[in-house]
Design a protein around this nucleic acid. Structure first.
Lengths: 113, 113
DNA sequence: TAAAAGTATTCTAACATTTTCATATTTAGG
DNA sequence: CCTAAATATGAAAATGTTAGAATACTTTTA
C-alpha cells in the first residue's frame, strides 16, 4: 500500500486544474503536447512543466514520435480516482447519534450554527 | 457533479499529511480536538487550523459538547476517496499500442529511456 | 466569580508552488 | 546544412500554503 507520504504526494500532484484536465483527457486516450496546447488555454512552457511534474511522479509517460511526444497514463489509480471525483454524492453522511470515541462529556450537544 | 474547480479544491484540501490522518481517523468515528492532539504530533493552534480548513470546505463538522468540539465527517466522498488511496494498484496501465488520437506521425516510436 | 481547560483566531516568517520569459534541444524538411 | 516545428529546461517574479507564537473566546469547575 502507498505510505501516507505517497498518498499525499499523489493528491498534491493531481490537485491543479490544468493537471486534472490533462489526466481527464488521458483517460480517453493518448495525446501529444500540442493537442493539450489547443485544448487547455495555457502557454507551452507552462504546459510542459505540468507534464513534467506528472512524469516525474510516475503518473504519465510518453512515446516519442518524431518531434512529437505522445503522452499516456501509467498510474492505474488515476482512472479510479477521477471516477470517484465524477460521482454525485448528493447526501451528506449521517451525523453521528452519540459519541462513541471521546466519551468525555454528555455528547451529543447542540449542532453548530 | 462537482465542477473542475470544486474537484481541485477538494483535492487540495485533502492533500496534507495531517489532514489525511484526521480524515482517516474520522472515517472510524467521532473525535474531538484533544484526541487528535494526542494522536498526531502537532501543536493545538496548528491542528485547529487544519480542522478549520476542513470545516470551511464542508468536509467535516462538529457537535459542541461543553468545551469539547466533537468532529465528524460530512462529505460522503471522503471514505470512497480514502479507500481508493488504500488500494494496491500493482500493475501499470498497459501502454497504448498505437496512436488513435494525434495521428500526426509514424507512432509508436521509441519508448522513453 | 476567578481560574483553568479546550479550542479558535490572527499575524507573521518560512517555505513551496505556479507562471512567465528566455533559451536550449531534437527532429523534419527543404 | 539551414531553418522551422515541437517540446523541454532554467531562472526569476508572483502567488499560495504552512507552522509557530501570541492571544482571544467559551465553558466548566472550584
Amino acid at each position: 500500500m502507498r505510505s501516507l507520504g505517497q498518498k499525499v504526494e499523489l493528491l498534491r500532484v493531481i490537485a491543479h486544474p490544468v493537471r486534472v484536465r490533462i489526466l481527464e483527457e488521458l483517460t480517453k486516450g493518448v495525446k501529444c503536447v500540442s493537442d493539450f496546447e489547443e485544448l487547455l488555454e495555457i502557454n507551452q512552457p507552462n504546459l510542459s512543466q505540468h507534464l513534467g511534474l506528472l512524469r516525474n511522479n510516475g503518473i504519465v509517460d510518453y512515446y516519442i514520435d518524431g518531434r512529437l511526444r505522445c503522452y499516456f497514463l501509467v498510474d492505474p489509480i488515476i482512472p479510479d480516482l477521477l471516477e470517484i471525483l465524477r460521482g454525485d454524492y448528493l447526501e451528506s453522511l449521517p451525523a453521528p447519534a452519540c459519541c462513541p470515541v471521546t466519551r468525555k462529556g454528555k455528547y451529543p450537544g447542540e449542532r453548530r450554527r
